[in-house]
Amino acid sequence: MLAIGLLLPLVLQDYLTVFGTRVLILCLFALSFDLVWGYSGIMSFGQAVFFGSAGYGVALLARDLDVTSMLLVIPAGVLIGFAIALLIGGFLLLGRNPSSVIFVSLGTLTGSYAFDRLARGWYYLGGQNGIPSIPPMHIGSYDLTEGPVFYYFVLAILLLVYLGCRFLTKSQFGLALAGLRENEQRIAFFGYKVQHIKAIIFSLAGAIAGLAGSLYAFHEGFVWPNMLGVVMSTQVVLYVLFGGSGTLIGAVVGTVVIEIVSFWLSNNYQDIWPIILGCLMLLVILFRPAGLVSLILSERERIGSFGRPPKVDDKERDHGAA
């Protein structure tokens, strides 16, 4: 997949490279949701809040303060996503008793709706039209505009974030997340501070969504209220469910497939493409509830192992010694 990703700008027309960049940014966004839902069992129906808030944040930095240096705006986007996720997560997850899935789902969904309405109604944020004409971000004297360079830049970031997520989910902390997802009540009796673990992973995922949102804002050149709203929040849920939650590659595959199919369908069946796409998704979720990734990976392979299971040689040696 990485090889294909590296070669694409060399063979694609420019407008498709722009489309590819957008898809890569959305993959990053999908990874953030997969961390909270797929790996930790926290249903966040408001992931777009962190994505959109970071987008608006960097857009305001660019518009009002002329800050477009990549070294400032990207960390700012990450920080905005992290801080807002920490605030919302702190409210929803840090109670004395563990929060129910319904409480967190509705809380995040309400947050997404509220942020959307706020952006639409606030003149300073451009109201319904959002903030247009964001100047390109730059590093040194080089302006990073949409095209192959932006594509490779986003691909590099996606790869780094993917590897970072893989490191985290395969670590002992990843095992704690698996415990959280499988039986939250049980692991509390082992001494885990489950609310803290939830708040950490929620904030970390918010930071990744913020990173994606800031890249999206500079890539598209404008931000608008939909970036914060329920539609975007639901879209990322579909990416992950379609590809296979609880696997990083599933989030990426789901996003790529949905975006490419949507792109193709919208060009060829302009009137009915959302219906066809919806039916396709329903079929996958009905017959492959674990997502597309389950076509090639068993449940055991998808969950993997976290520790160091005994090697056959070790066992044989032990038996030999005995």
Partner: peptide, 26 residues
């Protein structure tokens, strides 16, 4: 935890009182 291996079940129980920062870096 049925989906986890026996090894990981016991490791999960053993590491429950470890600081989260140590868990992140295994």
């Amino acid at each position: 935890l049925p989906a986890l291996t026996l090894y990981d079940n016991v490791l999960l129980a053993l590491q429950g009182q470890t600081a989260l920062s140590k868990l992140m870096f295994s």
